[in-house]
Write a protein that binds this DNA or RNA. Sequence first.
DNA 1: TTGTACGCGTTATCAC
DNA 2: GTGATAACGCGTACAA
Lengths: 332, 332
Amino acid sequence: MPTIKDVAKAAQVSVATVSRVLNQDKNVSPQTRQKVLEVVQKVGYTPNMLGRNLRRKNTERVLVLIPSLSNQFLSGVIRGVESAAKEKDLQVMISATHNDRAAEEGYLEMLDNRSVDGIILVGSTLEREEISRLANQYPLVMCSEWIEGAAVSAVGIDNERAAFDAVNALLSGGRKRVAVISNEEVYSARLRTQGYRRALAQAGVPYRQEYEVDHYEYTYRAGMRACRKLMALPEPPDAIFAVSDELAAGVCKALIEQGITPGREVDVFGFDNTTMSKVVTPSISTISQPRKKIGETALELLWERMEHPEGNYRLVLLPHELVLRDSSRKIN
Amino acid sequence: MPTIKDVAKAAQVSVATVSRVLNQDKNVSPQTRQKVLEVVQKVGYTPNMLGRNLRRKNTERVLVLIPSLSNQFLSGVIRGVESAAKEKDLQVMISATHNDRAAEEGYLEMLDNRSVDGIILVGSTLEREEISRLANQYPLVMCSEWIEGAAVSAVGIDNERAAFDAVNALLSGGRKRVAVISNEEVYSARLRTQGYRRALAQAGVPYRQEYEVDHYEYTYRAGMRACRKLMALPEPPDAIFAVSDELAAGVCKALIEQGITPGREVDVFGFDNTTMSKVVTPSISTISQPRKKIGETALELLWERMEHPEGNYRLVLLPHELVLRDSSRKIN
DNA sequence: TTGTACGCGTTATCAC
DNA sequence: GTGATAACGCGTACAA
């Protein structure tokens, strides 16, 4: 690999001049610029980022840390991040933590050792205090999923309100016994449970402990299990709100196995508007989040932290949308 | 941020000694080691990777370049990569190209400028010659999806054989008019088409041009479109083999819309054994690839290139499995 | 066992 | 407009 020195020698100029040409410094005559560029071309020189980064103390690179790769919703978010990053000439890298704390900490160390300029965190296994400390020290924002009360910029939707809307749609369709499949370990899911409860309360529907099922994972298998449990109740629900589409798909699957048609005897509502919610039969009513916009905003917030480390933290809530499909009665 | 110098000063030793402690050099007395570690702890020192990398000329980091993040199958492959990388103390980063050539080239430049030690390429928009040149110059392997005839190590399954097996399963079930939905732009899909043809030929079923549909994208919408086209033929097929589960799910969806039950009037076969193939009703017969093993092998191959740059290229084909579900008749 | 000093490849400051 | 040269933070001969 040729270095800047080799180029300088071959072009019969100093390394300083080569560097100037490469960094579009205007203090260089057209002839020498020409000459240098020729040599660069000829020897196939590419700047060594290791040297450049060391000198500049940055990498022009950001990391997106997500719990899992197999998440349709997140892939949309990341497209948004990538799109906004392109504008700022930042490179985007992604890593999955699989909710493993050690792994997450390993990646977060990249902030300490300057391997990346900033991190977008989608959920975290860390405590509020640690997040706050990191966000105070480095460019770090949270996206879509965040920690209650942490001092950090974040972007997402109003989860409580979205769930409220979903459950209201079910109630408006005439359903009386609405159940929820949620996850008390995840903040966004807790908020969704709260929205569910508020909708019931507002409609004057009595609260039933047995209609709230916890699952701990967002898989269709968990959805099937939860659904069987609910339908085995003495008085089974006539509508089920699941906090993810994959859960909802599992719910539908379990219902069908029992000879029940989702959207007829029992309504089903999902969350995220992923491909799966469209492709299964019947198609699943769900909440659509502005994924791309969420990702874009996350990067904007990160950029804000990079430019103004002392600025205030911001929480950005983006609007969601109800998507009514065949798994729930239409409201007439 | 404290540097190695600060630590040295505070510990009253030279930077060399600190460096030795940090790199487990045995030539250092227990007392000084102790002392240094204490100071490191106290000032919260973490080595600056920018400096270290520049000096060592490597990053202990590998990149996995994939076309899209929203690919259930790939997420399994990457888990395999991560698992094997852990053994070698390598960090894994992922980036998506979205089949954009400029983006891909941008990431591949990370090899030139030493931002990563090696790259695992899952598919590529580049030509055979470019891939060969890169693989010759840097640690670079292909995974799951590769370029015909390129001089590069690669791992995946025998796509031709897998398709052959799938179509044979359909024929064994008594189907006579088997169609395929493939993608002539993708090498693995071309191989699957070949396997499809061989199975037909071996069974003495005449070749029909109109039963081969090209789609250009792996979405369920494309599957629906292709299915409608096929079922509109004067003599529609009685079995459809799609080269991805999402396509197959679209096919099922379109069939159901026409009042046709997949697995009864028309068989459907997918590829990859993703969640979607299990969750839709009816569940979809498919080919299961050893995703994790594929990922692990990819990293092993990459490691091989990193350790022995002059070694021979290897092509590793892993065994696949047929997964028969409700969308195709069981073979009795 | 420990320290000195150099170099990794680049950018930036200062002269000229 | 151009060229020396000093950093950046670290690892490692080499010397002691």
